[in-house]
């Protein structure tokens, strides 16, 4: 809910707000070369995509406790392993067939951008309801990782997620996270690192 996202969209501020940030952020944005890997955070509304985006990039986008907080795409850089990666936060979507405008934003981004990895964030408490989107993303042939988020709340409800079984059944990496408590972020990063094209490894003669 957030106008301040408009200046933030492209890392640099377009207008007056926060001109001092220009000095801080532009250099970071400039570091991004066109070859840098791009990854997207997708998922249903109110599952914690924006919190995870904050954790990965250190850039603040407004987070709220209701669906539909994010209405625009936000971009930021994250350090994954040795590489700089462009992370894209998207508005929530229920399925690949969009219902509202902001869902269309997220869907079109997936449909038309070549992404190195896609992280689907799901709410552990409502796993069953979130998985149909997972199936659709897998069908689309996207390089998918599943971040099962809000594990803390799931625990409180007495829910346990079998991480390995889920990964085997889906055939994609599955990471358990509680983004709000900063748990599972390192695991997510190392899983991401495996999806990235390896650095120019110096092959010894």
């Amino acid at each position: 809910m957030n106008c301040h996202q408009c200046p933030k969209n492209n890392c640099t501020n377009q207008k007056s707000p926060g001109w001092w940030k220009l000095f801080r952020k532009t250099p970071r944005a400039l570091e991004l070369s066109s070859q840098d890997a791009q990854i997207a955070l997708v998922g249903m509304p109110n599952v914690g995509k924006s919190v995870l985006f904050n954790r990965l990039t250190g850039i603040y986008v407004t987070v709220s406790n209701y669906p539909g907080t994010t209405v625009e795409v936000s971009r930021g850089l994250a350090q994954i392993g040795e590489q700089n990666v462009l992370v894209i936060d998207t508005p929530g979507m229920y399925s690949l067939v969009p219902i509202s405008d902001e869902e269309r934003v997220a869907r079109d981004l997936l449909l038309k951008t070549s992404l190195t990895a896609v992280i689907q964030v799901v709410d552990a408490k409502n796993l069953g309801r979130m998985l149909p989107l997972t199936f659709q993303l897998i069908e689309a042939g996207l390089p998918l990782l599943l971040a099962v988020n809000m594990m803390d709340e799931a625990h409180r409800l007495g829910l346990k997620v079998q991480q390995k079984a889920l990964a085997v059944e889906l055939g994609i990496p599955v990471i358990l996270t509680s983004a709000a408590l900063n748990q599972g972020i390192d695991e997510l990063k190392s899983a991401l690192a495996k999806c990235l094209p390896s650095e120019r490894v110096a092959i010894p003669a």
Partner: peptide, 11 residues
């Protein structure tokens, strides 16, 4: 269509 999609999306 939209109502149907919404309901399905909500499970």
């Amino acid at each position: 269509q939209n109502v149907m999609r919404k309901l399905m999306a909500l499970g």
